[in-house]
Amino acid sequence: MPLPLVWLIKVVLIYGGLITVAAAMSLAERKVSAWIQWRVGPNRVGPWGLLQPVADGVKFIFKEELVPEGANQTLFRLAPILSAVPPMLAVAVIPFAGEVSIGGHVTTLSIADLDISTLYVVAIGGLGIYGVILGGWSSNSKYSLLGGLRASAQMVSYELSLLLSILVVVVLSGTLDLRQIVNDQAGPIFAWNIFALPVGPIAFLLFVIATFAETNRHPFDFAECEPELVGGFHTEYSSMKFALFFLGEYCAMTVMACLTTVFFLGGGNIPWWPDAPWLLELTCFLSKMGFFLFLFLWVRWTLPRFRFDQLMALGWKVMLPIAIANVFVTGALLSLGWFA
C-alpha cells in the first residue's frame, strides 16, 4: 500500500471520528441536560433518539439562509468557517495512540507528528476567536456585537492562564512535542502530570477552568448568553451557517478534552502497562476524552452563569497570578531536582 494512501486513511478516520463525536455531542448535550433535570430527552428519532443529529442536520439544510440588511456580506459568510476550521486543524496533531500497522506500514495514530505540536495547537486554537468576533461584528446587530466583544475579551484573558498552565507541562516534560509529552507520562499512574506534586494539580485545575472559558461554555458562555444577548454573536445566523458555529464549538470542546488528556492524564497511557496494544490505548484515550466531554455538559447543567465583571476579575486577578506563580515554582523545583 502506498504511503499517501495510509495518510489518507488516517485523515479520513480521524476527521470522520471528530465530526461523529461533534454530532454525538449535540445529542449528548440534550440527553445529559434531560437526565440532570429528571427528564427523558430526545427519544423519538431512531432507537433512544440516536438519529437525532441526522434529523437536526437535515432540518438545518432545509432552513432559509438569511443575511441581515447592512451586514458585511463577505465577513458574515466567512465567520462560521473561521470558527469551525481551526479546531478541526488542531486535531491533526493529537496523538491518539502509539504505533499502528496499516497495510504494512508502521505508523503512529495521529495525522502529523510535529516537533512543535504544542505551539501549533495553541496557535491554531487561538484563531477560533476570529470567527466569533467577525460573526458578531459583521451581523450589524447590537446583540451580536456585544456578544462578539465579550467573547473576545474573555478568550484573550483566559488564553493567558491556559498557556501558562500548558507551560508548566512543557517545563516538566522538557518538550513541545505532544507525543513526547504523552510518552513522558508512561509507567505508573504517578507519572501523569496531574500527579506532579505540588504544581500538577494546580496547573490541571487552571487548565480545565480556562478550557471552559476558551470554548465559551458554561459557566463562562458570555458569547451567547441567551437572557441578555438573545443569541450573542450568532443571533443573526440561520441554517447551515448557524450549524457551523455549533460544529466549531463542539469540535473545540473535543480538541480541548483531547488536550487535557494529553497534557495531564497521560494520553492513551494505561497505568503500569507501558506496552499496551494500540487498540486498548486508543480506547483508554477516548474514555478519558469522553469523561472531559461529559464534564463540559455536566458543569453546564449545574452551575449558573457568572457576571461579566466577575469573570474578568477571576481571569485577571485570580487565575493569572496563580498561573504565573505556578510556572515560577515549577522552574524553581525543577532546578532543585524535585522531579528527578
Binding site: 437526565w35 440532570i36 429528571w38 427528564r39 455536566w298 449545574t302 452551575l303
Partner: peptide, 21 residues
C-alpha cells in the same frame, strides 16, 4: 460548593424520570 453542586446534579441523573411519554 462547586463539587457539591456537581455531585448533586450527578445523583439527579439516576433519579426516576418525571416525564410522561
Amino acid at each position: 460548593q462547586i463539587f457539591q453542586a456537581l455531585s448533586h446534579s450527578f445523583r439527579a441523573m439516576f433519579q426516576p424520570r418525571i416525564t410522561r411519554q
